[in-house]
Amino acid sequence: MPPLLEVKELHTEFRTGAGLVRAVDGVSYTVEHGETVAVVGESGSGKSVGALSILRLIADPPGRITSGEILFDGRDLLSLSEPEMRKVRGRDIGMVFQEPMTSLNPVLTIGRQITETLEEHQGADRGTAERRALELLEMVGIADPRRRLRQYPHQLSGGMRQRVMIAIALACNPKLIIADEPTTALDVTIQAQILELMKSLTRKLGVAQIIITHNLGVVARYASRVNVMYAGRIVEAGPAEAIYHRPRHPYTMALLRSVPRLDRPRQARLDPVEGQPPDLTRLDGGCAFRPRCRFAVERCGETRPALEATSDAGHLAACFRSAELAAEEVAA
């Protein structure tokens, strides 16, 4: 069976006052049916723009998808007309965003926002849609769903609003859910509840997920495969276990080392990634991580290393020295 989603050489650019920003600069990856893939990166790494590009939600101007293919379930989303694309969004691909207060409509009841999706995409009549809405709210664990249907977003807590977003995302039985920092705005106990809910529901319903996050703990808990992004490119990709235990890119290695961990003895000092995040308007032809990399050599300034297979199965890295790093031959 072909993968559910195949992103090929995606390029998305923004024309800004400071110059051209290649927010997504040649990104390729796949998502299999029912699988959870995490896209990890920091601000400006292109992780969110990459996801919004899949849904073609890039505001033009200033943004534009300049090239690439996005094959979803056999069709190239980039070649669809806007009305066709509108049928894909919310029906075949569900979306969950970071801030549920701004992604829900404040002047419509919760019930109306769910039934609207069902009427629009499935041609359901009012009665059927309302019964299904009630069912969905129960499924996402909202107590007293009948009362909640008649309420407005501001009457719900942040956690509950995010449950409503998940209900809407699942309303039309999508094949894929894209969740952009779905729990970043939530408290840690609520974050745990929401992630647990998303995990059990997507498993039960066989929905694939792309989770975009900066939180390395969330990825470790929920994703089977991980793409690590830096300055618009995937610098490392592979099974979660391999990424965390055998990182092959200096950025991933540094990132994992820099976070304090509750399950380990307290360190005397943290080991940060030195330097500043890259200025995307001033990238040269070399590896974007080079100025912060403790393994950089002359070659890294000349060409950008491509994402290539490592000795690990399914584990890719974009670093000239990944084989050396694997063999631990490198003197740091």
């Binding site: 470790a220 235990h245 961990r261 399950d263």
Partner: peptide
């Protein structure tokens, strides 16, 4: 509850953790 809700950045550790969100 608060401590058990914090995910540890390590898939092996996470797989072996008994986890009940409050």
């Amino acid at each position: 509850a608060l401590l058990s809700a914090v995910p540890i950045p390590d898939p092996r550790v996470e797989a072996g953790r008994a986890f009940r969100p409050p």
